[in-house]
Simulated scan of single mutants.
Amino acid sequence: MNFAQLNAIFLTVAAVVFLAGLWRSRCKGHLVIATVSTVVVLMVLTVIFDNVMIASGLFDYAGHTLNGFRVGLAPIEDFAYPLGGALLLSGLWILFISQGKR
Rank of each mutant, 00 (worst) to 15 (best):
S90G: 05
F18N: 06
P75N: 09
D78S: 08
F3C: 11
A80V: 03
N67I: 12
G57S: 13
A20V: 08
G29F: 10
G85Y: 04
L11D: 11
A20H: 03
N7K: 04
V40G: 03
R26D: 08
W23Y: 15
T38Q: 04
F96H: 15
V36R: 02
F69M: 11
V44Q: 02
P75R: 02
I94R: 10
L42H: 02
T12G: 15
G21E: 04
G100W: 09
T12P: 00
G91I: 02
L22K: 13
L11C: 15
A62L: 15
F69A: 12
G91P: 00
L6M: 14
P75F: 06
A20F: 15
A80Q: 01
S37N: 12
I9Q: 07
F3S: 03
S98I: 05
S98W: 13
T38C: 07
G68I: 15
V39Y: 00
L89P: 01
I33A: 14
S90P: 06
L22P: 06
H64W: 06
G72A: 03
P82Y: 03
F59Y: 08
G57L: 07
G72T: 03
A80M: 03
M43C: 08
D50T: 01
G63F: 10
A80P: 01
G21F: 05
D60E: 15
V17Y: 11
L22M: 08
P82G: 13
I33E: 11
A20K: 00
F96K: 11
D78P: 01
H30N: 07
F49G: 06
F69H: 14
D78H: 02
L87G: 10
I48G: 11
G63Q: 12
G91K: 03
K101R: 10
S56E: 06
V32P: 02
R70K: 15
H64A: 14
V47A: 07
T12N: 04
A86K: 05
V44I: 14
M1T: 15
H64F: 06
M1S: 05
L42E: 01
T46Y: 09
S98T: 09
N51S: 04
G91F: 02
Q5A: 10
W23H: 08
G68K: 13
H64G: 06
F79Y: 15
S37Q: 03
L6Y: 06
V41T: 07
L31T: 04
N67Y: 07
N7F: 01
V36T: 05
S90D: 09
V47L: 13
G68S: 11
K28A: 11
A74C: 09
V36M: 02
V36D: 04
G84C: 10
G68H: 14
G91A: 07
R70E: 09
V40S: 13
F18Y: 14
K28W: 10
Y81Q: 15
T35F: 09
F96E: 14
G91C: 05
S25Q: 13
L83W: 00
F49C: 12
I76G: 00
G63C: 06
V36I: 10
N67T: 08
A80I: 00
D50M: 06
M1C: 07
V17W: 11
V40F: 10
N51W: 09
W23I: 08
